[in-house]
C-alpha cells in the first residue's frame, strides 16, 4: 500500500502546487453553479427531491468532465517528460503504479464533489432535503468518479499526448453514457446489454432518487476495475514493446 500512497501523494501535490487543479475546479464549479441556478432553481416549481435529482444529474456530467481533465496528464505527461522511468525502474509493481496514479485523480474528484455540497444545501432555504437521499446521491457520484477516473487513466496510458488522452477519455465516458440511446434502437439481446453498460441511465438514476442497489455498486466497481486492469496491461506491455 505504501508505494500506492507515495505515488498518489506526489500526484496530489502536483495538482495542488501547480495551477491545473485550481483552474479545473474553479471553471467547472462556476459552470455548475450557473447551470444549477438556471436549470434547477429558476425554472418553475419543483419538489425538493426533484431539484436534488436534477442537481445529481448535473454534477454527474460536470464531475465526469473533471475526471477526464484531471486524468489526462497522469501517464501522458510522464511519458512526454521521460519521468515514467522513475516509476518503472523502482522496485514496485505495475499495479501499484496504476493504482497510485488513479487514486490521486479519484481523491481530486471526491474533493470536487465535496465542493458542490453547498448547492443541495441551498435547497434547504425553501425546501427539505433527506439526508439519506443526499448520501445516496453522493455515494453514486463517488462511484461514478471511481469509474470515470479509471477510464481517464486508461486513456492517458494509451498516448503520450495529453490532448489526445483528454479526447479519448471524453470519448470513453461520453460513449458509455450514451449507450442507453443505442440500446433503444438495438435488437435483443443487444438492447439489454447496451442499456446495462450505460454509465448513467440504468445505474445512476437510482442513486439520484436516493436508492442504493448492490447491482449498481458492482457495476461501477467492475467498470473501474476493468479499466484499471487494462491500464495495468498497457503499462506492463510497454516493457515488452
Amino acid at each position: 500500500m505504501r508505494p500506492i500512497w507515495l505515488i498518489a501523494r506526489r500526484e496530489l501535490a502536483a495538482y495542488l502546487k501547480g495551477m491545473l487543479g485550481y483552474v479545473i475546479f474553479a471553471v467547472l464549479l462556476v459552470l455548475e453553479g450557473l447551470m444549477f441556478n438556471v436549470w434547477a432553481l429558476s425554472s418553475g416549481e419543483y419538489r425538493s427531491a426533484e431539484v436534488l435529482g436534477a442537481f445529481f444529474t448535473l454534477t454527474f456530467g460536470i464531475s465526469t468532465a473533471a475526471a477526464v481533465l484531471l486524468t489526462m496528464r497522469l501517464f501522458a505527461e510522464e511519458e512526454r517528460d521521460g519521468t515514467l522511468v522513475l516509476l518503472t525502474t523502482a522496485p514496485i509493481s505495475d499495479w501499484q503504479i496504476v493504482l497510485g496514479k488513479w487514486l490521486s485523480a479519484f481523491v481530486m474528484v471526491l474533493l470536487f464533489d465535496a465542493m458542490t455540497l453547498h448547492m443541495p444545501l441551498l435547497i434547504l432555504v425553501n425546501g427539505h432535503v433527506e439526508p439519506g437521499h443526499l448520501a445516496a446521491g453522493y455515494l453514486g457520484l463517488a462511484l461514478v468518479g471511481a469509474a470515470t477516473t479509471a477510464l481517464g487513466t486508461l486513456a492517458s496510458a494509451l498516448t503520450r499526448y495529453q490532448v489526445v488522452a483528454g479526447v479519448l477519455g471524453g470519448a470513453f465516458c461520453l460513449g458509455l453514457t450514451l449507450m442507453w440511446m443505442l440500446g433503444k434502437v438495438a435488437d435483443p439481446p443487444f438492447d439489454t446489454i447496451l442499456s446495462y453498460i450505460s454509465l448513467h441511465n440504468k445505474h445512476f438514476m437510482p442513486f439520484m432518487r436516493g436508492s442504493v442497489h448492490l447491482r449498481d455498486v458492482v457495476y461501477y466497481a467492475s467498470l473501474a476495475f476493468l479499466a484499471l486492469l487494462l491500464t495495468r496491461q498497457i503499462v506492463g506491455a510497454r516493457r515488452w514493446r
Binding site: 505504501r2 508505494p3 507515495l6 505515488i7 501523494r9 506526489r10 501535490a13 502536483a14 502546487k17 501547480g18 517528460d81 521521460g82 519521468t83 515514467l84 522511468v85 522513475l86 516509476l87 523502482a90 522496485p91 514496485i92
Partner: peptide, 21 residues
C-alpha cells in the same frame, strides 16, 4: 535526460524516491 519532477524540491524529491524504493 535526467528524469526529475520539476515542481518538487531537491531534498523532497530524493526523500520521496528513497521511500518509493
Amino acid at each position: 535526460q535526467p528524469p526529475l519532477y520539476g515542481e518538487m524540491q531537491v531534498a523532497g524529491f530524493l526523500q520521496w524516491l528513497g521511500e518509493l524504493r
